Amino acid sequence: MSNLRPLIALAVALTAGGVLLATVHRSPEAPRATSAPAPAPTPFAAPVSVSAELPDGADYTPLFYASAEVSVGTAPTPDGSADRLMLRAKAGDRELHRLAKGRYAQFLGFTAAEGQLYWAESSALADGAYETRLWRAPLDGPAAPVSLTGDMGAAVFFDSEYDLVIADGRVHWVAAPPDDGARTELRSVAVTGGPVTTTSFEGRFRHTTWPWLLSVDDTAPLTLANPRTGERRVVTKAAAEQVVCTPVWCRSMVTAAGDRFLFDARHPDGSDRRRIPGDLTAITVDNAVAGRYEIFTTYRDERSALVAYDLQTSALLTLTADTGVSATRAGVVWWHEGDAWKSVDLR
């Protein structure tokens, strides 16, 4: 594989139904007032807090939470010579892997299943080429990480909880085809490693709730597809809507006057549509977090609040009244507050 193809795949804009989002959401400097009604009190457990600084003084940035108590993230070595992937839990901190700064490491696609953590790692080789390698490590215990494969093709990551999917004893991901055609490579490898299987699938897609795929081609109708059965469902949407879906729920966004975003929750066929109140900014390409919540930031009293819209009750619930950095994946939402990272498991 040439140097360029993995770079193209890894630099894909975080696009899902036309919605563009940053890897970690940072609130704009100039807040806007909101006329949204005061939200209902949160029913969630008290946030779990962990220091934003490691004992050796390095800044820690979480990238994934397996639970509210167990996080995985990056921190430089104290001398700044390498990037470390760290696992933090009540039992203590554990270094999973480190790469020299000159390797330009990217840690991607985190997911966890049955006590195991999985992730992809892109880094530069000595000859200037890039490789993307899939890894596995236990969430508990001292066992070292193992590489499952380096045959990931032109893997594409959307900063989605579905970038890597564990199902049927295998790790699944999508990759761009070698000829840049309007197709998707559906790739997988056993959770124990081994040969990679590759299936070509017509259209450009990413994974959503297993085994469904969601199209990511703005030139074609928004489509949910099941590669197992061959079923394809075109999502009902207006031309001005930017929509992201699971097979059950969709989040719709339109731009209103003053560059405000208006969000609706609805089903893929357009039914049960309701407006989500407030001046909101979505913080993730995924919708229906934990199967139930849409996660946003909104401004109140010149502060950025983090809120969850409950798809079952239509209540807008406050997670924290003041945050600047926030993210969510696989049912856990986390944010930076003071000198700590705080997290809540929504599952």
Rank of each mutant, 00 (worst) to 15 (best):
R206H: 06
H207S: 11
T208M: 06
T208W: 03
T209N: 14
W210I: 07
W210K: 03
W210V: 06
P211A: 13
P211V: 08
P211I: 06
L213H: 06
V216F: 12
D217Q: 05
D218F: 00
D218Y: 00
T223E: 15
N226W: 10
P227R: 04
T229K: 11
R233N: 09
A238Q: 15
A239N: 11
V243L: 04
V244I: 06
V244F: 00
C245M: 09
C245Y: 06
V248N: 14
V248S: 15
W249G: 13
C250N: 06
C250I: 01
C250A: 03
C250Q: 02
S252N: 06
S252E: 05
A256W: 00
D259E: 08
D259T: 08
D259R: 05
R260H: 08
F263G: 09
F263Y: 15
F263L: 08
D264H: 11
D264F: 11
H267R: 15
H267S: 12
P268N: 08
S271W: 00
D272A: 14
R273C: 12
R273P: 05
R274K: 12
R274E: 10
R274W: 15
R274Y: 13
R275A: 10
R275P: 03
G278C: 03
G278T: 01
D279R: 13
L280G: 09
A288W: 02
A288Y: 03
G291E: 11
E294W: 01
T298V: 02
R300M: 01
E302S: 12
R303K: 15
A305L: 01
L306C: 09
A308N: 02
Y309V: 01
Y309S: 04
Y309C: 02
D310I: 07
D310H: 07
D310L: 08
D310A: 11
D310R: 10
L311W: 05
L311Y: 08
Q312H: 02
Q312S: 13
T313Y: 09
S314T: 14
A315G: 04
A315R: 15
L316C: 02
L317C: 06
L319Y: 02
L319W: 10
T320P: 14
A321R: 11
T323H: 04
T323P: 11
V325T: 10
S326H: 00
A327L: 10
A327G: 12
T328H: 07
T328C: 15
A330F: 00
G331T: 04
V332S: 07
V332I: 15
V332P: 09
V333Y: 01
V333D: 03
W334Y: 12
W334S: 13
E337V: 05
D339Y: 01
D339Q: 14
K342Y: 04
V344A: 08
D345G: 12
